[in-house]
Nucleic acid binder design. Structure first.
Length: 449
DNA sequence: TTTTGAGTTGTTCGA
DNA sequence: GTCGAACAACTCAAA
């Protein structure tokens, strides 16, 4: 009997244990392997338009590598999958497990109604959420102990793509949806080959200097930009981890942060919308007309703080933002504008090609101080000095803010100090950081206990 | 069992 | 300009 391999967030052939398992099962009865992607309401609604575009391009690449044998279906998995099973006489459906609360729940519900087994093999993590815990079995809330336990737990060796697969040939099927209109957005290539190429290039040009350069948004190879390929499963973290040496610990920790936050969300599913630290529920967020306008200014990259604005403009022109800058813009929204972290988190989810609910919400909660490793109350980023420190030549500012290109070098960070700083329409600061910082500290003091 | 020290990402102030 | 202290106090594991 044929097996079905249901592609979801694992759009690759290499190092895909679930795919190998599916093919092995089909081979036992000398049968074929059916490959499918389903545009399902629950499965696909978590993707923003940038991701939808990436998904469509990635599926096109995947279909090519499957000799055009990938079946594309549209509709609820509860309807579409049973129909596929019936029409092909498949005796099993193979998947790589989901851990996002809503998707995991859908798999569990589906499992109950399918007439054939839904076989889970592996996940998109080196160590699946829930596998690492403290001695008393409770989950970690601090990164470093989690990292140590995660390293001791370890992971399997990468495996090759299955060879000589006898793919089931689709008779006729639905086609891919039209790509969304994204205007001038410039996006990197999608697909497994692009992911592996990008990793190889970073490994050669950026990995050795990663510990130092990772905080520099002006540098091209400061970071690996593997977050989007990892999000779509075009490469597995195990593939990357396997190529790191002992000296690459700083980079390995970044891979682990993704797994740590997935673990935290797995144990605390409500933290997609709720504070992990309940004290924070009392935080007096700003709302109303002024706050609405400030939020719009922040979204548009018009706060009058160059480093913040450059980051926010990078987000809407590339669907991506450098990690250091994500922290600075998040800190600015929360602690300078006193706006609820959830609004910022939602905006990020709408634009990031790597948008991942666990990493995104908990990255925001970390900055807010409501999450893991609750950042001490005094950790309020200074949006000006952060820019001067991590973009010393003003190149990042020049790249995204045309109104400041006339200010040479680091002067781009301080338009108020130049005679013609505002000559090309750059906005004045919407708030005074030194005043808002004090207010943020006072607010924290109120909710702390 | 209790104590102690370390912990992604910081800033400001004053010497 | 550089440097250390202060900010104030949670989680976790090793001693």
């Amino acid at each position: 009997m044929p097996s079905i391999y249901w592609f979801r967030r694992d759009l690759r052939l290499a190092d895909n244990p679930a795919l190998v398992t599916a093919w092995e099962q089909a081979q036992q009865t000398d049968s074929k392997l059916i490959s499918v992607y389903i545009f399902d309401e629950v499965e696909t609604k978590g993707f923003n338009n940038v991701q939808l575009d990436h998904l469509i391009r990635s599926l096109t690449e995947l279909n090519n590598s499957l000799n055009n044998n990938l079946i594309i279906l549209h509709g609820s998995v509860f309807k579409v999958l049973p129909e596929l099973i019936k029409s092909t006489s498949a005796d099993s459906v193979h998947i790589s497990a989901h851990y996002e609360p809503e998707l995991k729940a859908q798999d569990e519900a589906l499992e109950k109604v399918l007439k054939v087994p839904l076989v889970r093999t592996g996940s998109s993590y080196a160590v699946a959420p829930g596998r690492v815990g403290k001695e008393d079995q409770t989950p970690y809330r601090v990164f470093t102990p989690f990292y140590k336990a995660w390293m001791i737990h370890g992971w399997r060796k990468p495996i090759a793509a299955p060879a000589g697969v006898n793919w089931f040939k689709p008779v006729a099927g639905d086609s891919l949806p039209k790509r969304p209109d994204l205007g001038d957005l410039t996006l990197p290539d999608a697909g497994e080959v692009a992911a592996l190429t990008q990793w190889a290039v970073f490994k050669k040009l950026g990995l050795a200097n990663y510990a130092e350069d990772r905080n520099r948004p002006d540098l091209i190879y400061g970071t690996s930009k593997m977050s989007t390929p990892l999000r779509f499963g075009e490469i597995h973290p195990r593939t990357i981890l396997n190529q790191l040496s002992d000296t690459d610990e700083v980079y390995r920790k970044e891979i682990c942060w993704r797994e740590f936050y997935a673990d935290v969300l797995h144990h605390n599913p409500s933290t997609i919308t709720e504070n992990l630290n309940k004290n924070y529920d009392k935080m007096p967020w700003e709302t109303g007309k002024t706050a609405d306008q400030y939020f719009k200014d922040w979204c548009a990259g018009k706060t009058g703080y160059p480093f913040v604005d450059a980051g926010m403009r990078q987000l809407i022109t590339e669907g991506w933002m450098h990690n250091r800058v994500r922290m600075v813009v998040a800190s600015f929204l929360i602690k300078d504008l006193h706006i609820d972290w959830r609004l910022g988190a939602n905006w990020f989810m709408q634009w990031l090609s790597d948008a991942d609910i666990a990493s995104n919400q908990h990255g925001w909660q970390w900055t807010a101080g409501s999450g893991t490793d609750a950042s001490p109350f005094y950790r309020v980023f200074n949006p000006i000095t952060q820019g001067e420190k991590f973009d010393p030549d003003g190149e990042y500012i020049h790249r995204y803010i045309p109104e400041l290109r006339h200010l040479p070098g680091a002067k781009a960070h301080l338009p108020w100090e130049s005679d013609f700083g505002y000559a090309h329409g750059y906005p004045k600061q919407i708030v005074d950081h030194s005043i808002e910082r004090v207010r943020a500290l006072e607010d924290w003091e109120k909710v702390r206990n």
